[in-house]
């Protein structure tokens, strides 16, 4: 167990988007969160990664309380994420997009920039090396020089992964990583996720594609109206009556 939420709750005005959720993320596993639209999955990610402040509850990372840390500090601790919609810089190359991902591991400031100090040159080199390394890992080396605007949706997803990996994370949170890509591409992204776990990274993902989840996840939590209604292995979730009622039967759109 690397990360733990305790009674995590988020209210937006009168709406309780996440309600008393206890969840454990297991190290070097694929931890999945599923649930119908509006169930609070993205909000749950936003709470953990410091985008939103919890209304109540606690988040522990390796036993340390990170409940009130801002997003950039959370990232420094080794929690990286991707967003439901990719928000890359379309007018720059894939490589240039990824270079800044390692910025949080560098210290050079604007004085270093103006005087082009040794530190800056070294750190720039490190950021570039890191970018090459994660592009290699995500199998994007061949399109590093292309503008993001000119690459496919699946490639953009990979760039978002690469960017998250460039921060040298221990956990990556992937918010619907395969939304809007075709089945073949979904499979190749699933393969990439497995590859990340094999490298020792813990993965936590939100996903709609049930078949993929059942295949990929070690551990699943089901959210409905902000509440955890089930948790367990894929086969346990498959058999769970309440899940079938609330989600699998209910929406129907989740093949």
């Amino acid at each position: 167990m690397i990360l733990q939420t305790k009674q995590l709750t988020k209210q937006f005005g009168g709406l309780v988007a996440v309600k008393n959720v206890d969840f454990n993320i297991e190290k070097r596993k694929v931890n999945a969160i599923i649930g119908p639209n509006g169930a609070g999955k993205s909000t749950f990610f936003n709470l953990i990664t410091g985008v939103h402040r919890p209304s109540s509850g606690q988040i522990l990372y390796k036993g340390e309380d990170i409940t009130h840390l801002p997003a950039n500090k959370v990232a420094e601790l080794g929690l990286a994420r991707t967003f439901q919609t990719t928000n890359l810089f379309e007018m720059a190359t894939v490589f240039d997009n990824v270079v800044v991902g390692h910025r949080l591991r560098t210290r050079s400031n604007f004085f270093d920039a103006i005087f082009r100090t040794k530190r800056l040159k070294e750190e720039e080199e490190r950021c570039k090396q890191k970018a090459l390394e994660v592009l290699e890992f995500t199998e994007l080396s061949h399109i590093g020089h292309q503008l993001v605007a000119n690459i496919s949706q699946e490639e953009k997803k990979r760039v978002a992964f690469a960017l998250a990996l460039a921060t040298e994370p221990e956990i990556v949170f992937l918010d619907e990583p395969t939304a809007g890509v075709n089945p073949d591409e979904t499979e190749s992204l699933a393969y990439l996720i497995k590859k990340m776990v094999n490298q020792g990274i813990t993965v936590c993902l939100i996903e709609h594609k049930m078949r993929m989840i059942m295949d990929l996840a070690d551990h699943i939590m089901v959210l409905n109206y902000g509440e955890k209604i089930a948790e367990g292995t894929p086969s346990e979730i498959n058999k769970n009556e309440e899940v079938i009622r609330a989600y699998l039967g209910g929406s129907g759109a989740s093949a």
Partner: peptide, 12 residues
């Protein structure tokens, strides 16, 4: 490009 993304990359 995106403040949200920048924050998630650990940028203050």
């Amino acid at each position: 490009n995106s403040e949200e993304l920048a924050l998630s990359l650990g940028i203050s």
